[in-house]
Design a protein around this nucleic acid. Structure first.
Lengths: 137, 137
DNA sequence: AATCTAAACGCAACAATGTTGCATTATAAT
DNA sequence: ATTATAATGCAACATTGTTGCGTTTAGATT
């Protein structure tokens, strides 16, 4: 996603295409997997803490990024796919965290997870797996 | 689980059966589903904040309770089943959080979730589902 | 039952994380 | 170029989590 597309996306969601937002989205895109708040903060340096909180909040509210999962009192964020919008999010992939190399990757589960709960309305499913990845094994 | 059994469990894991620990375990058992830190704190009042942190930590370390999931920068804890011990935890059930009544319940997924990741070692799987439960529907 | 020791507790002080209000600056519409 | 509004940075505050240490309690020993 290049700079022009990003600006369009932000404007479409009624957000100004500020340097902070573009920079954050670029970094998240380059990073490849879900980023923790502390990692984001390091990579965005120098930035005011409050500005970062509000930047993340605005992108989250408009469905441009989402909370992938939380761990050790830290939230991990990821860019939403094209299937997400302000109203509804679709994130049925799983996040795998390797306990050796500490990277987080998205795993498409071959057989779609069949969750059948009669009379339940399911809005969001998040699957978080921890272990040792193939490279570290 | 009555008081005698609880004391035995604590002693088996090399923890003293203190009033604080017994009280916390009783409350978690009575509560039925995963409890957030803030709810625990309210129910344990009056208690020193530090003591609560350390009580939870000790029970968690010894595999008596586990972190069910985290949400809104809060950790939810639940009592481990009999299949858990100091070394290994088995928690393959899913947690369902109703967005209307805010209760969290454990859902046994009828078809066991088949997660096949070749050459990966899977230590822990946590599934968190949000939506509207049958009663609120 | 009294004594003893290690673990657990409570308090104080500190550190890290998250929030609010407001003056200044940047975006983008006119 | 001008202007209105949103975004930023700063200060102050609130909440959450951590560390050190003196006191108390559990439970083992005698």
């Amino acid at each position: 996603m290049d700079s022009v597309q990003l600006k369009e996306l932000l404007r479409k969601r009624n957000l100004k295409a500020t340097h902070t937002r573009l920079s954050l989205l670029n970094k998240m895109h380059a990073y490849g997997s879900a980023m923790s708040h502390s990692v984001i903060q390091k990579q965005m340096q120098p930035i005011d803490r409050v500005t970062l909180y509000r930047t993340i909040e605005s992108l989250h509210e408009k469905g441009i990024i989402h909370k992938a999962f939380q761990e050790n009192n830290e939230t991990f964020y990821a860019i939403c796919g094209s299937s997400c919008n302000t109203q509804a999010h679709k994130h049925d992939h799983a996040h795998f965290k390797c306990l050796k190399c500490n990277t987080v990757s998205c795993q498409e589960l071959d057989e779609t997870l069949k969750i059948s709960l009669p009379n339940y309305e399911i809005n969001k499913v998040s699957i978080h797996i921890e272990g040792i990845c193939d490279l570290c094994h």
